[in-house]
Computed example of a mutant assay.
Amino acid sequence: MKYIIFQFRNVLLTLLVVISIDVLGQTKPNILILATGGTIAGAAGSGVQSGYTSGQVTIDAMVNAVPDVLKVAKIKGEQISNVGSQDMSFDIMLKIAKRINEMANSNDVDGFVITHGTDTMEETAYFLNLVTKTDKPVVLVGSMRPSTAVSADGPLNLYNAIAVAGDPNAKGRGVVLVMNDWIHSAQSLTKVSTTAVQTFMSPLRGLIGVTSYGVNDFYRYPDQKFGNKSEFSVDGVTKLPRVDIIYADVDMPADLIDASVEHGAKGIVIAGVGNGNMPKAALEACARASKKGVIVVRSTRVATGTVGRNVECNDDELGLVASYNLNPQKSRILLSVALLKPRKLDEMQKIFIDY
Rank of each mutant, 00 (worst) to 15 (best):
L12D: 05
L335P: 00
N327Y: 05
N30Y: 07
V337C: 09
D249K: 06
P203K: 09
N275F: 01
T120L: 14
Y324W: 13
I246Y: 05
Y213R: 15
T211M: 10
N10Y: 02
K71W: 03
V83M: 04
T118R: 08
G174Q: 05
Y159E: 11
I31D: 05
L177A: 14
V72P: 00
R173V: 08
S20P: 01
Q7P: 00
A303K: 10
D251I: 01
L339E: 05
A265I: 10
G166S: 05
N216H: 05
D354T: 04
R220K: 15
R301D: 03
L130Y: 06
A303H: 10
R205V: 00
I19G: 00
V302M: 15
D354Q: 10
G293V: 11
V294D: 02
L256R: 07
S260M: 02
A287V: 03
F90G: 08
L177Q: 09
I21E: 14
P155S: 12
I75S: 07
N107P: 01
D244K: 03
K266E: 04
E122S: 15
G227W: 03
G308E: 12
D110F: 04
G166Q: 07
D217L: 15
S233R: 04
T199P: 00
N314F: 11
E262D: 11
G209N: 04
K266A: 08
V18E: 12
D354V: 01
C313M: 12
I268M: 01
T238C: 08
D181C: 06
P168F: 02
F200S: 14
L320Q: 02
E102A: 14
Y213W: 13
T120N: 14
M144T: 03
V164W: 05
P253V: 09
N30I: 00
S202Y: 09
K28V: 09
Y126M: 06
L240V: 07
S331I: 13
P155E: 12
G267W: 03
D258F: 10
Q49S: 14
Q79L: 10
S336L: 09
Q198E: 15
K239G: 04
